[in-house]
Design a protein around this nucleic acid. Structure first.
Lengths: 261, 261
DNA sequence: GCGACTTTGTTCCTGCGTTCACAAGCGGCT
DNA sequence: AGCCGCTTGTGAACGCAGGAACAAAGTCGC
């Protein structure tokens, strides 16, 4: 449904301020929600994942209680915003004291749906796909890699990071069998849409796309796009603006009293 | 200044939406801008980079003119939003016809500051750093890799993607010498802040951070964070909500008439 | 050359997200 | 037991971004 950039970046989502949503919903105004259900703002979801990261690190350091002010400073956000974000998962703080770190982690994980099992499939075992397949950060954070795919016959059958590579023709079957919930696309741009379609056929409803193309998907599939070149271009823009280059400050204000021709 | 996630990152999106800004500016309200200068909204910058990508692809296919409606469909955004975004770079469309693709690319590149030279340094030549150093997408989009760094003495001196690896102690000197403008951090979390400080000393003002930590930087340094685990957690949330799991729909609405204890 | 059609650029409005500010609540101290 | 100080949780205001709708402007056909 949503396709974010900027990690981001924001996206807003970034991942964020966020990048474009590509699947327009029905023109109806407020989406029907059953009563008694609070929806969590999109922007807050990304930050909750960030708090989770910070809190986990704090627990490793032996911190058992923390105030919103301090946690907000570490995470780099406004403390009022942090408290509001945390209020979306429920009121589990103690006034005058702060939050119990372990308890907070537990509740954030529940809200983010991390209590249920996830399996990841990586498609495209090139430079990036190879790195992701070997990356220890996924399994350690609850996202085990359960399948690898590539179109290259020379790669099919070899083992990367303890997992054998299958041919992409087998994506639908293997994904369905192994209950893959998240597909990661690291293919060249031209192959990305086809691979995406195969993943959808295999029942995958969450896709992380590293290919620099905008994927077209059914409305019930969620795509997040990670584009390194886009990130660099955004950095480039801010760098140029900071240096005060006239080019980026498009000075197009018309001068009053300009001669009429 | 800004640290986005989710591309954001989004939003965000982006990231995309976007993720948190960690360096609070002065409490003053509207930042002083010289007259005649239009500031481009943060969210629009990310989309402009996306349009650039789509337009480049269209030019390769021989498309010389395109209407906002069609371009918006391909990019997955609302056409009114697209026209507004393009208006930030100046009015270069022709009514009744559309936009000249080549001309549009030229102007977007100018606004994003891509006309000036950029050099990239990659720090941490592990799985991911290795992949990025070999990744052809950077040079081809105007971001040549000019330096590689690692702390491992076994890696120092070897060549990756045609570039020799230096020791991280030499970051400040080498970055200054080669005019590195963008630093990419692919180190383990514990080393990220130290590496970041070294880059800043070396004059680098733009940082792309793949380590799952929030970096603390001076106000004139721009950080964009790319966290794969956060992206997956956001996907996890949407997946769980779509399936209607009660856990993520925190049903905390108090029932009227609950017994008073 | 003129009219009709197409498409841009912009204005207005609505909704979301962020921020400020404060009342309510809890622990610790006396 | 009561008071004081600290922190949470939330209500209200503000600002920004998104979407619809329209006027201006230019092209194509006749």
């Amino acid at each position: 449904m949503q396709q974010h950039g900027r990690y981001g970046g924001d996206a807003a989502r970034p991942v964020g301020a966020d990048l474009p949503s590509q699947q327009a919903g029905p023109p109806a105004g407020p989406p029907p929600r059953p009563p008694g259900v609070r929806t969590i703002p999109e922007a807050a979801v990304g930050r909750l994942a960030l708090y989770l990261q910070v809190l986990t690190s704090l627990i490793d350091q032996g911190v058992s209680t923390i105030a919103s002010e301090e946690l907000a400073r570490i995470a780099g956000v406004n403390s009022a915003k942090l408290r509001k974000d945390l209020s979306y998962v429920g009121s589990y703080g103690t006034r005058g004291v702060g939050y119990d770190t372990a308890r907070l982690v537990e509740h954030i994980e529940r809200v983010l749906g991390l209590t249920q099992h996830h399996s990841v499939a990586v498609v495209g075992i090139g430079n990036l796909g190879h790195a992701l397949a070997n990356y220890g950060g996924f399994p350690s954070r609850g996202f085990p890699v359960a399948a690898l795919f590539d179109v290259d016959e020379d790669l099919v059958g070899i083992s990367v990071g303890g997992q054998a590579v299958d041919h992409i023709d087998r994506i639908p079957k293997v994904c369905a069998q192994r209950g893959v919930t998240i597909g990661v696309i690291c293919t060249p741009p031209v192959a990305a849409q086809m691979v995406c379609d195969l993943l959808v056929v295999g029942g995958v409803r969450c896709i992380l796309n590293f290919a620099p193309v905008v994927l077209q998907v059914p409305a019930d599939v969620e795509v997040r796009k990670v584009d390194l070149a886009v990130e660099m271009q955004i950095l480039s823009f801010h760098d140029a603006r900071r240096r005060g280059h006239d080019e980026v400050l498009n000075v197009v204000e018309p001068v009053d009293g300009i001669a009429v021709i």
